[in-house]
Amino acid sequence: MKPFSFDYCRPESIEEAANILFEAGSEARILAGGQSLVPMLNMRLAKPAVLIDIMHIESLSKISDGAKEVVVGAGVRQASLEKWSGLSTKLPLLAVTMPWIGHVQTRSRGTVCGSVAHADPSAELPLSLLALDGSVTVRSKKNIRKIKAADFFIGMMATDLGDQEMIESVSFPVAITGAGYAFKEIARRHGDFAIVGCAAIVSKDATRLAISGVDDHPRVFSLPKIDTDQFDDALNDIAWDLNARSDTHASARYRRELVRRLGKQTLLEAYKCQN
């Protein structure tokens, strides 16, 4: 199939993009890597009147390495972040997660912020952003706001992004000294969206476990200070707290069991990775 006709705009600045979006509102869509949007256009699941291509805005193609967080612009491709020299030291969770995202070919085109904006409940980047307690900076013509990941993802492929807002960047907090990070997922094939994905962060002050693929958006849980032999009870409570769903890939019961088993493996690996 072919998409419906639309006007194509290629702004040269973030301000110009925001102005176009302000005028078009809900009739516009932002185009970055296009790995999700282009198939939706071809299948006519998305029918924008205006397509705003932001991949020629130089300011959005940068990875900014700060003392407390790493800021990834909306034009940064997943492959660029995967190859970034500071990834393993500054963002160890993403270093072990990135190879699981799609395939080499899709990572070479898809953007980090595009995956966050698409908000698939099984996707790895929204899960990692939530696990790390990161944030999303969104811009409109009149305003800029920074939204915590826990408030940004609100439902099945639904976010707190307004019709006249676009993602400018996402911010990942840098690694905590001495903390352990781990990621695991189960999918039908490598590169497919996960049936269940788990990301764990274990430090001397806190233990966090984020889970994707079970509820209608990724969820994160803070575990109390417990011994590793108490994980089973804690994970059983988490499994029942999630609104598990059945589909053609797996039953709700199977997903809950994966939370128990995969969650435990991920937590134990994070414990072992502590420095």
Rank of each mutant, 00 (worst) to 15 (best):
M55G: 05
V96Q: 13
K68W: 11
T97S: 15
Q164N: 15
I201Q: 11
M40V: 15
L242F: 10
G213L: 03
D233K: 12
F172N: 02
P92C: 08
D7S: 14
C9N: 05
A32C: 02
S171Y: 05
T111D: 08
D216E: 04
R255A: 00
R109C: 04
D133V: 02
R245D: 02
D65S: 08
T266K: 09
A244Q: 06
I186S: 11
H217A: 09
C9F: 10
G114H: 11
T137L: 07
P173Y: 08
C198W: 00
W84Q: 00
V38H: 01
S64Y: 10
L129T: 06
H249S: 09
P121L: 04
M156A: 12
A175H: 02
E168T: 08
A150P: 00
L60C: 04
I176K: 12
L93V: 03
K62Q: 15
L235D: 06
V70N: 10
T228E: 14
G134K: 02
A131N: 09
A24D: 07
N42D: 09
K68S: 14
S251R: 04
W240V: 12
F193D: 09
M40I: 06
M98K: 11
V71D: 01
E185L: 03
R29M: 05
K225C: 08
V170W: 00
I20Y: 05
G66W: 04
L94E: 07
A150N: 12
L130N: 00
A123Q: 03
R219K: 14
C113E: 03
I176H: 05
G86W: 14
T159A: 13
A206L: 06
A119Q: 07
G25I: 13
L60K: 00
V104H: 10
A95M: 06
A158D: 06
R10Q: 03
D216F: 11
A270F: 07
R261K: 13
S108W: 01
I226Y: 12
T106W: 04
G213I: 03
Y181C: 07
A244H: 06
I52T: 01
C198D: 05
L209V: 08
E69F: 09
A49H: 08
S26L: 06
R109D: 00
D7V: 15
A206M: 13
F193M: 12
I226L: 06
K90V: 01
I63C: 06
A67Q: 08
A210T: 04
V96C: 11
V170M: 03
D120S: 10
I54Q: 14
I238N: 09
S88T: 13
R253S: 15
L37F: 01
Q105S: 07
I195V: 14
I57V: 05
K62C: 10
K264Q: 09
I211W: 02
E269W: 10
D205N: 15
L129E: 01
K83T: 08
V76W: 01
R10D: 04
Q35S: 10
H56T: 12
G162E: 13
I195M: 09
Q35F: 10
T111H: 00
N42H: 15
I226A: 09
S88C: 05
M55L: 12
V138R: 00
S108C: 12
G134Y: 02
A270R: 04
V202Y: 03
V116D: 07
L93C: 03
